[in-house]
Structures are given as structure tokens and as C-alpha cells.
Design a protein around this nucleic acid. Sequence first.
DNA 1: AATGGGTCCAACCGCCACATG
DNA 2: TCATGTGGCGGTTGGACCCAT
Length: 364
Amino acid sequence: MGRHSCCVKQKLRKGLWSPEEDEKLFNYITRFGVGCWSSVPKLAGLQRCGKSCRLRWINYLRPDLKRGMFSQQEEDLIISLHEVLGNRWAQIAAQLPGRTDNEIKNFWNSCLKKKLLKQGIDPTTHKPLTEGHVKEEKNITETSPLSQGPSVPLTFPSSQGSSLLMDSNYYDGGLTEASREIFMSKPALDPLSYYDFPMGVAQSAFNIPVSVSQYHTGLKASDQSHFGPNSSYGFSSMPSLTNSDHGNVSVTEFSDNNSASKISSLFMNDQVKESSSNSSNMSTIYPGGGCHMMENAGFSWEGDNKFEPLFQFQENGIKSEDFKTSSWEEGQLQTHNSIDFTSFPLTSLSEDLTGANFDVFQHI
DNA sequence: AATGGGTCCAACCGCCACATG
DNA sequence: TCATGTGGCGGTTGGACCCAT
């Protein structure tokens, strides 16, 4: 089987996505939702294969993505889940709202692996390395700038609804076989289900298998600093297009590089940039702290790659009225000229995630 | 300032599973 | 049952970026 038929076609673009491509895809998906990916490129006016569009949406354009560094809790959770699930990144990502499998996989390969090795733990087996291993790995990890970090007791789910306390510094791989099986059998969260919105938005199709409330309530104050001064970066308040605290949504004026990939963080929570000095930019862009979105068809980029945010958050949700209708989509768009984002499942996400009654692993 | 090595990450590749005809 | 199309996943890689020299 191998390569998808859509990828075989000639003249399809590859490589990094341009801001214009991002805009087209984002506008298309926010307007029509996710249907058949193979038809998305054509309908959205993109010279990409459907698979590429899917990846771009999942890994970068989804509005609920959480950007920036992983918190200590997330880190510990990833390690714990990896012990149970192995390299099943999609299933691991399902336990970490706002994170993608790709992101977690990269984080594992670039950071966590080394960190475990430094602690004398085999990242594959999660067992202590043999002396030979330790000597061998020591050379590799000796120069690693990674710190060991605090010893944070990790609340880990168990099937009984209680928690396994694990300590990231004393990782002994002490999971029960039952816990392992539960994870192994648990279906992964499909991030796309959130965004199948336009046609069936009103349905409460927002089916989150687990919540993070137990998880985030366990955060220490200091740990929440991982998300910057703005509390919206914690699990307690996932980035949301519809939540009323949109004043917290980071809209960063990018001027530091020409990377298309980074540019499109416009509509993301780019906490790294946000946490630096951009809060003032925010108030400049959105006087009064109110964010308004999509009053004028998504976003636009100026020639110098600085953002000219067109998304406008509104107190009662996002309106996509007056979405531009480009030539490519004329004729395609018979309906949905006005979408009230408040009815999108995304709303449910942020609400669910802030709900205290949502027990993390009660379903596990 | 130039450059070379290391790191990070977005995106691609190849495979598998499943649905459909 | 088989062929085909599509979605999804994990492994890999190329290039941008960072930093030491």
C-alpha cells in the first residue's frame, strides 16, 4: 500500500507551510470543519496532500493547542504513561490536553530520554540501568544541561480511582499489570473530534475520555509558573476561543523571524513569547484587554511577516461572520456564512477542563 | 564575524487498520 | 474475498536555530 494516492500527485507542495497556506487551511476548517481530508486541499485551495493538511491542523493550527514548555507535571505524566504505553504517543497525548503526539514524541526524544538516562534509568524499560549502561550513558548525558528538577510526587491513575504516588526521582517502574492493561486498552483521544464542528456543532460530540481536573488541582503554585503569569496556560483554563477570559489569549506580534511555522502561532497560546514581554503588546493590540476574533475572516499577514491580527474575540464568543469568501470556495459554500463559535465543542473543552467535578481518571 | 557542532522540531515517510464497493 | 481509498500512527529526517570556539 504505502504512499497515499494523494501524495503521488505531482505539483504538490512540501515542506514548511506558508502563512497563506495556514490561513487558507485554518479558515476552511473553522468554517466547514473536518470532513474528508483528501478533499480539503482542493476545497481550501491548497497545493498540499490531504495528509499534510491533516498533520498541519492537528499539530499546529488547532485552536486548543497549548504551546510552550512542558510543566513538571506534564513531564512526570509523560514518563509515567510512557512506562505503561511505550511509544504510543497518540495515547499518551490523549492524556495531555492541548499537546500533540508529535510534540510529546519530540519532547521525549530531545529531553526526557536524556533526563532519565542522567538519572540512571533506562528510558526504554524504565528500569535502573546496569552499571555498564550507566558508564556508557554517563558519557552521553554528562554534558546535558538538563536539570533533574524537583522531586514531584506524581499522581497516577489507577483503576480503583485512587492514585498511585510516583516520584520522578525514584522511578521504579512500579505499575501494576492491571494499570498497564487499562492504559493499553484505552482508546486514544481523537483531537479531531473536537473540530468536526460546523455540521454537527451543537451536538455534544465533545467526548473527552478523561479529564485533567484531578491533575491540575494537584499543581503547586510554583509549578503553575510553567505556564507563565497568566493562569490561562494552566490546565485550569485551556486556551479557548469562546471562553470569556479571552483577554488572556496571547496574540503576539511576531517580528523576530520569518518562519512560517512560528508565525502562525498568532492564534495559539505561545507562552514562551507571551511570558516575555508581550503583555504590553496585547494591550496595544486589544485595548482594554478584550480580545476579539474573526470579525474579518481569520488572520492576515503583512509583507514583513508581522501579524495583523484579524481574529477578534468577543465576550460572548467568536463570530466568524463576514468570513471572506475567496474565489476558490465560491460555489462550495452554500451555507454556514455565519458561525457562532460559542456553539462549538471547543467551548465544552475549556469548560470541562475547568470543571472541578471532572475526575481525571475516573474512566480509566 | 565566521564556522562548526549540537539541538530542536515541523514535516515527511512508510506502514497498518478500517471502511467501502 | 479482494482491491482501493482514507485516516491514523510511529519513526525518521532536514533544516533552522543556538552556542561555543
